[in-house]
Design a protein around this nucleic acid. Structure first.
Ligand SMILES: [Mn+2]
Ligand SMILES: [Mn+2]
Ligand SMILES: [Zn+2]
Ligand SMILES: [Zn+2]
Lengths: 144, 144
DNA sequence: GTGTAATTGCAACATAGTAGCATTTGACGC
DNA sequence: GCGTCAAATGCTACTATGTTGCAATTACAC
């Protein structure tokens, strides 16, 4: 719908992955790019509305699925059973994450995943490792 | 309901944590002790039924919550959004876990959690770390 | 045995996500 | 620009997983 959607970094990213340039797709990716942390489906929906983007719940789910499938975004499940989405900056987010066990917030941490030396049972195939630090975030630690 | 529920390891464990010895509680813990892996609420329910233990869905949820609160069991969330429960053998399961991204199965791995040297943002409090290995389990790798 | 708080069972509710299908639209060739 | 058509959308239902409120039951201390 914008005159030149390709002009934005979001549009470029989407096009680079062979996806159609749709209003919701671009808007969602812009939200993810602007966010400093992983966001839930709901949080993204609220952000879209704030940006004046009318959208459907299901379309948003499908848009997020597409972004993940295309490798543009990554998805992780929080202790609150909600999936959170973020831009996949370099590969499938090979960095540790912090999960706030109070509010569910997830933040990406700097630094590489530690080298793992764990032996798997026979026949098991390893795809990737994930290091989670669980605790309480700054705002939850203060607040009630 | 059994004549001497204290006689079983399950009964002993529950009593040691100051909990009332109820039929479902003992039966659930026995299922967890017998399982070689973490089980979902549903899988535990099926196991109970197979053992002839009539039970209520909600009671099972509450029983599992109690076991986790008492530190007898631990709970983790899988990529399929289902919580899985296992006996907490030594502390809050300080060992790595393997998650099958195909069927959701979770298995506890031997070995200790690697020492982590990640710096958290200011004000964040770290409670525990969790190392997840993602991949495909042996049965999923064979089967369709 | 009795009293009482913990536990259960049931029905209703909540949240997060998925499926089917008719309608709309982005991209492509002209 | 214009027609074509698969990809994407917007609905409406539906599923899976877990929670709440409350009256009835039960384990256990006495
Ligand atoms: Mn990340
Ligand atoms: Mn474990
Ligand atoms: Zn928090
Ligand atoms: Zn599997």
């Amino acid at each position: 719908m914008p005159d030149h959607p390709h002009a934005s970094p979001a549009g470029t990213l989407i096009a680079a992955h062979g996806g159609r340039l749709t209003r919701t797709r671009v808007a969602v990716l812009e939200v993810l790019l602007a966010a400093g942390q992983s966001l839930t489906h709901d949080e993204i929906g609220v952000a879209l509305s704030r940006n004046g983007i009318k959208h459907d719940r299901v379309t948003l789910y499908r848009t997020l699925d597409w972004l993940v499938g295309a490798g543009v975004a990554h998805r992780m499940i929080g202790n609150d059973r909600a999936r959170r989405f973020g831009v996949a900056v370099s590969g499938p987010h090979e960095h540790p994450h912090f999960h706030c066990d109070r509010c569910g917030k997830v933040v990406c941490l700097e630094g590489a995943q530690p080298a793992v030396a764990v032996s798997l049972p026979g026949g098991y195939r390893l795809d990737r490792t994930e290091l989670l630090l669980h605790g309480v975030c700054a705002s939850c630690d203060k607040g009630p």
